[in-house]
Simulated scan of single mutants.
Amino acid sequence: MENQTTVYTLVLAGLSDLPSLQLPLFLVFLLIYLITLTGNLLILLLIFTDSHLHTPMYFFLATLACLDMGYSSVTVPRMLFDLLTGRRVISVRDCITQIYFLIYFALLEVSVLAVMSYDRYVAICHPLHYMQIMNWKVCVQLVSGILGFASIYTLVHTLFLTKLTFCRPDALQSFFCDLPQLLQVSCSDTFINVLLIFLFGIFYGGVVLSVIIYPYITIIRTVLKISSKAMRSKAFSTCSSHLTVFFIFYSTIIFNYFRPNANLRNQELKISLRRMLQNVDCRHKIAQTR
């Protein structure tokens, strides 16, 4: 560490090294990004202008549309800039900032999807008391609580990232900054960072899964008791689309944070644990000599 030079800029691997592909990729992703923004803006406009859609379910849907625009805007504009200019260098500060907002919006989306499952549970299993339970005050409190928790959760990761140093010329194997790739190129001890990923991931992931699975078990039981085939079909249609979005998003996060760098993390954990045990053993021997 003493003989290594600290670097303050990182290189993104990008999507392709072929110059002939830069412009086509730029146009394709620009089109996808504009479609994403336009679609979500149309959803928001429709919800705000139609008084029949001023219900808790569509309130959460509007929140999800806003988060989707925020999540895509964290990475896509920078990627488009790099494709257009060929510049793939990013400062460590900007990289950590991008990671902050990436984790922040991802956490918010998963949380809102989990809250929407509770909303569906109340609507299907307790329809007569739906507006009493899911009133506007409760909806705002739920979203506010999620925003506050996500801010603290993400801030903890970010503060520990600022303690890392970088001295490798390796490129980040992605077209944007993400937590696993950033830890790979750090020359600091990333044991705490990896431990936070696992502890927070297991704890919060377990909570979110419980919030999703338990209501849907009750929902399925209730729907199966409905005599009307059309009503059953409508209920299952609403729930299946929500579950599909959740599990696609959730499985992507799990794969990204728990699969690609499993060998790296296992090695780091083993080295750090071995070092910790050696320190404990040394202190024990020193205490005995005294």
Rank of each mutant, 00 (worst) to 15 (best):
V74G: 04
I90S: 04
V112G: 09
K137S: 11
L183F: 12
F81Q: 11
V185K: 09
V156K: 02
V89N: 09
G205I: 00
P77C: 04
P19S: 07
V115W: 01
D50Y: 01
H157D: 07
L113N: 04
T85N: 01
Y153D: 09
V7W: 02
F81N: 10
C282S: 11
Q278E: 15
L224T: 06
I213G: 06
I90D: 13
L196E: 11
K225L: 12
T36V: 09
A230Y: 13
L30H: 04
V208F: 07
L41D: 00
Q267E: 15
F29P: 00
H52M: 06
A171W: 01
S227A: 09
I133T: 14
G70N: 04
A123E: 12
C66D: 05
S51T: 05
V11T: 15
F26M: 03
Q173V: 07
V245P: 00
L31E: 02
L195N: 06
P19V: 05
L209R: 02
V194T: 12
C167N: 13
S72L: 04
F160P: 03
I133E: 08
L61N: 02
F203V: 15
F255W: 10
L53G: 04
V143D: 05
M131R: 10
D68C: 04
L80E: 08
K137G: 09
L155I: 03
M231H: 14
C66L: 15
Y214L: 14
M69H: 03
H129Q: 08
M276L: 14
N256P: 00
Q278Y: 14
N40L: 02
T289M: 13
A13E: 15
L164T: 07
L224G: 15
M57N: 03
D189E: 12
I103L: 14
Y118F: 05
T190K: 02
W136T: 12
L23Q: 07
